[in-house]
Design a protein around this nucleic acid. Structure first.
Length: 571
RNA sequence: GCGCGGUUAGCUCAGCUGGAUAGAGCGUCGGCCUCCGAAGCCGAAGGUCACAGGUUCGACUCCUGUACCGCGCACCA
């Protein structure tokens, strides 16, 4: 594939810059970066290279720019290059210089914006991983939506993406879950029980208890030894919860390549082996941790534990691998899990966690540094909390009282598309105020309908053209240089920048950029459509505008697909 | 106390890895359908980019400090 026009221009400038600095080998050669100016007076592309060179060359920027322009040889499509402002070089292309690329959009269709998958570039993306002790809440939903979109984005940009869900089906919480269910089972049998605060209060526990009683005989559980009973019920309850979680994920269109069970790590001895491995590296010792500062712990008692020397790899304190009773901590299993991923061939891992797990990053990365020597693995993205409101009034959510709002309730009320798109409109670093009523509005207040409407509107125009017997010209016969109005030019520039936007979004792990891009694209389209009549104008112009509409619809469609949001043809 | 994240228009948020005059939606005010989808478009008003320093040709963007908000800080996950 031949280099794009942008790359050609970039290279031409880079050659000049390299030669200008050839004598100054002490200076690091800056990389030429072409940007698309916000204002059309500043041309099609702008370069700030003269300003960055001014320092090292000890000349004023405009002078440097002149020297560059004197020697550079641009491709033919460049009409002119001016020096502007403090030393920008503004490059203007011949009219219609790039508009022919519009045709590529239709030729590449669903692949426009994508690059070929590099099989040697596998990445394991772990997200959601909600505990199998209850239904998913909206916070999980945000992580799920962001993770799925990131997976699509990375796949579009060439990564071989493996989506994975880690099931925390071991540890105390499963015991609590099992006990909660067992109590409800007894209660359903008419026995009088006392339900402790520590047990899970939600109604779903009763549902699970009923479900188990439907398929199994109560007396067989009664007859079991307590350990066995809790283990059996725990496994059944985890299965039930996972079935519920998978169903919730399905309703928002999310699937995984693999569900990885923590329990299997213990069962296969991998946790044990990992601890042994660290023992052999002399990275474990027995000691007691000091009490944490600034947090009151009434029953603090120093405990001798097996500690992992994570401080040697950048952590603040050493971390326990075994609890007081000798069983492995969650941390021990988690590094065994990441180690397992590594040995499955994933040199590159990305984890998406809720903000409440932020304190956990350093210790996992430290552990992986010890085990693999790799820095910053896994790459962890923290998604900030979601505050759910209705008409601005916050929900009082309490897990203890069982009054938290589940993801499925929200999806049922506002719909998958609205949930997904809304979650994608903000950076993951910002806390999200999600208002149920606003998300339900089918108007401009709700961005998802704005962008979907743009797509449906284009489809309507194309249908209309067909109804009126307009024969679409062959793509190669369309004269795209006729698309010369301000609105058309703006729209075209956006369409052409789509691959660049995707690339930046993938590199920065910021899939939300896709959503903001679509909103801007939809706005550019609406503005174009309002001022530029399509059907009924002179035939060549109409053909060109129809082509532009088709390309716009294609890009909106492609982008929405990455976000897992539908692009309806009618609404 | 320490760590992480945040602070941009009345409200909710963008701001393309440091560029040219800081943008959008909602809300307010005023326009646009005898004409392809008005779930739309156009215009007006609205800003000490939390605050104070610093870095440089240039800072909403990078650094330091302060304030406020959220999250986290042994033997839970």
């Amino acid at each position: 594939m031949k280099p794009s026009l942008k790359d050609q221009i970039c290279q031409a400038l880079q050659d000049v810059v390299d030669s200008m600095l050839a004598d100054l080998d002490s200076v690091k050669t800056p990389v030429v970066i072409l940007t698309r100016p916000k204002q059309k007076e500043h041309g099609d592309y702008a370069v700030n290279i003269a300003m960055t060179l001014a320092g090292p060359l000890k000349q004023n920027p405009r002078q440097v720019a002149e020297t560059i322009l004197k020697t550079v040889s641009f491709p033919d499509s460049v009409a002119k290059a001016d020096i502007a402002g403090p030393g920008f070089i503004n490059i203007t292309l011949h009219a219609g210089g790039e508009t022919d690329i519009l045709k590529d959009i239709l030729i590449q269709a669903e692949r426009y914006g994508c690059v070929d998958t590099n099989q040697n570039n596998p990445v394991c993306l772990e997200f959601v991983s909600a505990n199998p002790t209850g239904p998913m809440h909206v916070g999980h939903g945000r992580g799920a939506v962001v993770g799925d979109a990131l997976a699509n984005l990375l796949a579009a940009r060439g990564f071989k993406v493996h989506k994975e869900y880690y099931i925390n089906d071991a540890g105390n919480q499963i015991g609590v879950l099992a006990n909660s269910v067992w109590l409800r089972m007894q209660e359903l049998q008419g026995l009088s029980i006392s339900f402790p605060d520590s047990a899970y209060p939600g109604d779903y526990i009763i549902d699970i208890a009923k479900e188990i009683l439907l398929t199994s005989d109560f007396t067989t559980f009664e007859a079991m030894a307590e350990t066995k009973r809790l283990k059996t019920i725990g496994a059944l309850a985890v299965d039930a919860n996972m079935a519920m979680i998978k169903k919730d994920l399905q309703t928002i269109g999310i699937s995984f390549h693999q569900y990885f069970s923590e329990k299997t790590l213990h069962a296969s001895g991998k946790v044990e082996q990992l601890i042994q491995k660290l023992e052999n590296q002399n990275l474990i010792y027995t000691g007691a941790l000091p009490p944490p500062k600034g947090k009151e712990i009434s029953d603090y008692k120093p405990v001798e534990q097996r500690l992992f020397r994570t401080t040697q790899f950048g952590d603040d304190v050493d971390r326990p691998l075994q609890k007081q009773d000798g069983t492995p901590t969650y941390f021990a299993a988690d590094i065994a899990y990441h180690d397992d991923k590594y040995h499955r061939g994933f040199k590159h891992m990305i984890d998406i966690w809720g903000a409440d797990h932020g304190g956990y990053i350093t210790r996992v990365q430290s552990a992986m540094k010890a085990l693999t020597g790799l820095d910053h693995q896994p790459e962890v993205l923290l998604v900030q909390m979601v505050n759910l409101t209705r008409n601005g009034v916050p929900f009082k959510m309490s897990k203890r009282a069982g009054t938290f709002v589940t993801l499925s309730e929200v999806v049922e009320e506002v719909g998958s598309d609205a949930v997904r798109f809304n979650f994608m409109t903000r950076r993951i670093e910002s806390q999200f105020d999600f208002d149920l009523e606003a998300a339900k509005q089918k108007d401009a207040e709700n961005p998802v309908y704005y962008v979907q409407y743009a797509h449906a509107r284009i489809c309507a125009v194309l249908r209309k053209a067909e109804e009126e017997g307009v024969a679409l010209a062959d793509i190669k016969d369309v004269d795209t240089s006729l698309l010369n109005t301000d609105e058309a030019q703006k729209l075209i520039k956006m369409l052409l920048s789509y691959p660049e936007m995707l690339d930046a979004a993938a590199q920065r792990r910021e899939p939300y950029r896709i959503a903001t891009f679509i909103m801007q694209l939809a706005a550019a389209f609406h503005s174009f459509y309002h001022k530029n009549r399509v059907i009924g104008v002179e035939d060549n112009l109409m053909q060109a505008r129809l082509l532009l509409l088709k390309a716009t619809a294609q890009v909106i469609h492609n982008a929405l697909l990455l976000l897992g949001v539908s692009a309806p043809e009618k609404m």
